[in-house]
Write a protein that binds this DNA or RNA. Structure first.
Length: 463
RNA sequence: UCCUCAGUAGCUCAGUUGGUCAGAGCGGCGGACUGUUAAUCCGUAGGUCGUAGGUUCGAGCCCUACCUGGGGAGCCA
């Protein structure tokens, strides 16, 4: 009895002349009356193993059922390939079909499909070269994120997915309720009576784990979260999802510069990890999906990110002599066209912009002495825009409280957040990295819906 | 949500000023071929032209609404 071996291992350590057993899904079958070639993929690598079957040695009906998409197991001798295109192949002795695949109705063909078509067949698109590569890389990046933080002493903190806080201010939220929507209990003023709801109060899906993350950081030192995040915004773009994954490190005793250093080192580490550990998948994507990908990844690793203040950015944009669709001016938020100009035309490398006007940033950001800017930072990447947003947090109780009142935020709901500033407050910083946006950059894919297995977007929750 | 483009065979698309306009390539199926590489060659079957209305003697084509998808913008990660 031969033990099954994964194709990746088989190709890394070929045992020529030995019998092997491989199991996987048929990508293509070619041949004639005498000889049949099967390209088999088991998902462990982008590379297919070629199976060669002498037609006379197998049932005609068995060979007929080996079609694109079918699942089979093959026992055979591992030999040097006689043909070009691959070094080794398996000379089949025995083939077992686990699951047939009707060639008439199986949606995937040998030829290329559009991304839109594959998105509608998200349950099967894992079986394509492109999506196999994307999701192997996605895994490698998730693993590398944990490795990076673990190696430098950060703790993985699980912040809640259901939250009773609506003060995060990061966008529209999905309600979580067990109330019967047909007979919603209401008070005398017509407002919904959440006392009868499961948690006895209004609850939502989280839009950020940051506030809770800060609580952890102000005791454990350095923490990070890595979990699902939900935004009920009606955003229809290739860069937005209603359900996405976010990494949010939060560090005590880090100022904004420490924060930027970490963000840059972190992102470069991940890209370096991909270059070293996802070579074949990246080469495929570079060749077939996005020419120049590997070069761009190396460029990011090898070059310092530009660091400028918001004020400097406005000056550069104003002096550019360009005509903008949206006006440039101190106090106005930077538009996509402005960010794109800075990253893709002016500096030609990732840019970190800091010290934004306080009016266009969140309440918790540390206020600068100038009274009008906050210690915020946005990391901008070519083609993607904002990939990281972060800041040094306001650790001074009075200043934070004043800002909360200024913005008329629900002070009562934030008692626990404010408590950290009353008891042993400390300077601290953190940022959020959109996982899918980062995967977009690493894989060179164009649409965020193609780097998450089952995208959730407005009007789409299929699968 | 706004702007814009698109929806015709399983897939990718062509279809002229409204009148043989139901088409091609690929895929599938049948056949040929002694080692293929998105194999090649011959043959063959597939469609309520996104949905619902409307204009017209006549609509794939023109008009209206809606649905779905792409691109751009906004919101953001």
């Amino acid at each position: 009895m031969v033990r099954r071996i994964k194709v990746k291992k088989l190709m890394a350590e070929p045992t020529l002349g030995k019998d092997v057993l491989v199991k996987g899904w048929v990508r293509t079958k070619r041949g004639n009356r005498n000889i049949v070639f099967i390209a088999l993929n088991d998902g462990s690598t982008i590379n297919n193993i070629q199976i060669v079957a002498d037609a006379a040695s197998f049932d005609e009906s068995l060979l007929k059922d080996i079609t694109t998409g079918a699942s089979i197991g093959v026992t055979g001798r591992l030999v040097e390939s006689q043909g070009g295109g691959q070094n080794i192949e398996i000379s089949a002795l025995h083939i077992e079909i686990y699951g047939k695949s009707d060639a008439n109705t199986y949606p995937l063909q040998k030829k290329g499909h559009s991304m839109e078509f594959l998105r509608e067949n998200a349950h099967l698109r894992f079986r394509t070269n492109t999506f196999g590569a994307v999701f192997r890389i996605r895994h490698a990046m998730a693993f590398a994120i944990h490795k990076y933080f673990n190696d430098i002493g950060f703790f993985y903190l699980h912040t809640p997915i259901i939250t009773g806080s609506d003060a995060e201010g990061a966008g529209e939220m999905f309600h979580v309720t067990t109330l019967d929507l047909k007979t919603i209990p209401r008070g005398e003023d017509g407002a919904i009576d959440f006392r009868e709801d499961f948690f006895g109060k209004e609850t939502n899906l989280t839009v950020s784990g940051q506030l809770e993350g800060e609580l952890g950081a102000l005791a454990l030192g350095e923490i990070y979260t890595f979990g699902p995040t939900f935004r009920a915004e009606n955003s229809n773009t290739p860069r937005h999802l209603a359900e996405f994954w976010m990494i949010e490190p939060e560090m005590a005793f880090y100022d904004l510069n420490d924060n930027m250093d970490l963000a840059e080192d972190f992102v470069k580490y991940l890209i370096r990890y991909a270059l070293e550990n996802c070579k074949e998948d990246l080469e495929f994507l570079d060749r077939m999906v996005n020419p120049g990908l590997s070069g761009r990844l190396k460029f990011v690793v090898e070059n310092e990110f530009v660091r400028i203040t918001y004020t400097e950015a406005v000056d550069i944009l104003s002096a550019s002599g360009r005509k903008w669709e949206f006006p440039v001016g101190w106090g106005r938020d930077l538009q996509a066209e402005h960010e794109r100009y800075l990253v893709e035309e002016h500096f030609l490398k990732p840019v970190i912009i800091t010290d934004y006007p306080k009016e266009i940033k969140a309440f918790y950001m540390k206020q600068n002495d100038d009274g009008r800017t906050v210690r915020a930072m946005d990391v901008l990447f070519p083609g993607i825009g904002e990939i990281i947003g972060g800041s040094q947090r306001e650790e001074v109780y009075d200043k934070l409280l004043a800002r909360i009142r200024e913005l008329k935020l629900p002070e009562k709901d934030l008692w626990w957040y404010l408590d950290t500033r009353r008891f042993g407050t400390a300077p601290h910083s953190g940022f959020g990295l959109g996982f899918e946006r980062f995967i977009l950059f690493v894989t060179g894919m164009a649409n965020i819906r193609d780097v998450i297995p089952f995208p959730r977007t407005p009007k789409n929750a299929e699968f």
